[in-house]
Design a binder for these strands. Sequence first.
DNA 1: TATGAATGAGCCTTCATTCAT
DNA 2: CATGAATGAAGGCTCATTCAT
Lengths: 201, 201, 201, 201
Amino acid sequence: MNDKFYEQKKEKQDMMINGAMKIFALKGYAHASVDDMVKECGASKGLWFHYFESKKGLYSFVVSYAVKYAILEYGIKLEDKGMGLYDLLLEKEKVKVDLMGMYPYLPLLILSILNETDEEALSLMSDARESYIEALENIYVGIDRSEFEEPEDSFLIQKMITSTFADIMRDYYHKPVFLKEEYISECEKYIQMLKKFLGKK
Amino acid sequence: MNDKFYEQKKEKQDMMINGAMKIFALKGYAHASVDDMVKECGASKGLWFHYFESKKGLYSFVVSYAVKYAILEYGIKLEDKGMGLYDLLLEKEKVKVDLMGMYPYLPLLILSILNETDEEALSLMSDARESYIEALENIYVGIDRSEFEEPEDSFLIQKMITSTFADIMRDYYHKPVFLKEEYISECEKYIQMLKKFLGKK
Amino acid sequence: MNDKFYEQKKEKQDMMINGAMKIFALKGYAHASVDDMVKECGASKGLWFHYFESKKGLYSFVVSYAVKYAILEYGIKLEDKGMGLYDLLLEKEKVKVDLMGMYPYLPLLILSILNETDEEALSLMSDARESYIEALENIYVGIDRSEFEEPEDSFLIQKMITSTFADIMRDYYHKPVFLKEEYISECEKYIQMLKKFLGKK
Amino acid sequence: MNDKFYEQKKEKQDMMINGAMKIFALKGYAHASVDDMVKECGASKGLWFHYFESKKGLYSFVVSYAVKYAILEYGIKLEDKGMGLYDLLLEKEKVKVDLMGMYPYLPLLILSILNETDEEALSLMSDARESYIEALENIYVGIDRSEFEEPEDSFLIQKMITSTFADIMRDYYHKPVFLKEEYISECEKYIQMLKKFLGKK
DNA sequence: TATGAATGAGCCTTCATTCAT
DNA sequence: CATGAATGAAGGCTCATTCAT
């Protein structure tokens, strides 16, 4: 269905993908307008529909693209089984920051996916959303939780870290420039604090 | 400006407030439509404008109302200075659940306020938003952090709990019915786990 | 149909009539709103409809009232047959200025009637409009045109004076206060100039 | 701001301009509806906003266009300085009638501009209105008033002619078809009459 | 392939009109 | 009589979508 799109130059593809990601990530599905994307990255209105048929199709595509790309990177950089919970969650944030090199708004888009409440948007991306969650679970399965006396505790902490980092990342996106290194330091503060109390790994 | 509205029967007032809270909380300012509110609670389109002049005015009013009401309840139920961090944050969730008795979507609306990115919405509620944040800070000032060797740690933990509870609450709102007791139990799990490791109070 | 209305105190009647005249005269039929009239003179929205059934009915009534009142005054003050064209047209303006004492916007309303283009408005007041025009013609019939060699000329001049005074009056209404004496002086300038050249009477 | 519009075919431009002129001229700014224009000339509702952003923008544009066009024609056809008052004012009406060839409602629109009382409309066209009035003054400066013993008289007469012709023109527009030649004859009657009495030129 | 003119459904808002009190 | 709450149709405007070029 999006074959035509892939026949273009990679550069132009990425320009359009980044435009769409930015607008969708910042405004959410319903409030994002195709005109915004035209302004953001030049490609004409007709072209978006030529490649993606509809706003729905575009959203499906971009979300699915973002998820696939993120899963791929996670796969490459987080696969060394046997990492501890803390190191892995921190590493995961570093991967996200790396992703921003190519697709600056990809991590924010993924956060917005997980928080999206618009029913239409949810139905359009249900597959991508689930496959992202599943991929994360697969990664989490490999975590070495032996440091924790009660395994259940580690899951609660995992959830807390995830929620907290998501919140912080959203804040960083609201600043004029996303300060990558500062963001990672901030995450590290939490990890170090937790390590001090709750398991060393 | 909303004098007319307050002259109506309390029941009807609350019906409209709840309708507006629900739609704004679920869809956000920009994507909430007055038509949705008409469907939600019967009051005709014209009536919303009769009372609130504009969608902007309605949003301002509802947000401000929600914030005032929440601050009031916090004031009444969280004022015993000297509570520990954990007990206070848990108690705060209980207050929110109590608020749902009268205004089911009030807590979700407050979460949405804190996450809102639409610039128009932000400008409409800047006062309310700030007064809410300030009120929370005043409550947090009274927390007894003596259990924590490093006070800084307690602030990181506080942030983590807040982010986590917000996430969980959003999930509970996505279910067909908000299971209040289950929600509180879930929050307690986190608190108990943390108490085990990080201070007893 | 407007019996009910006439059963009120004269004062209140005139307050409402003046409110309606002002709004209709200033904004024209289509753009005048009943809310404007409420603001202008206090009588509640429901009351207008109680007395006049509809905006159409109100317009019909007010226009008809204005026309009747004006014709009455013209009848009283311009009836001395045998006046010359110039004196009569000037006297007519003086009558209008007198009318403002009781109904400040009556003369402007009459001008607006004669210029109205809105089809609905035209159909609502066709009778009043015609009876006004007819009444004027009856007055003009009594004019002594013996000063004019060619009677046709006097009709052209009459039309010119009428158009000119109407224009000037509109200008005066646009000022913060209608300066009555100044208005009459301005009219006199034209009359005197014309007398100099075109007949003495 | 209206670049897009000018890139269309001249024919289509003129069709839309004429539609807008007609509706604005007949109904005035406030009561003119874009729907009326849709009915009048086919272009869809969205298209008007595609080109003009808002009803305000459309009004500004059309008024400004009309004024510029009229001033241009006046410049071409009335520039022979040294014309007498009468000939010039008559010539001016002929220019207006010529303008109707391309833009049938342009002269009526200009009359409506000069009579408009709606505050919003006034603010939207203040520049155009003033530039029109100024252009007329520049033309009037060239008038040869030597026939008049008292120059002041000539200004009064000028005002009278202007008011009268405006009135007559409005009447002609209210007929099913604007009878151009008849209109000019009517104007000439006044001019001839005046010449007979008040200066020959 | 690429553009943007063109369309119409949907949303915010106004306002004449009705009706319960 | 008097009030103003309540309603819905109509108008301004946005935006996804189509289509001629």
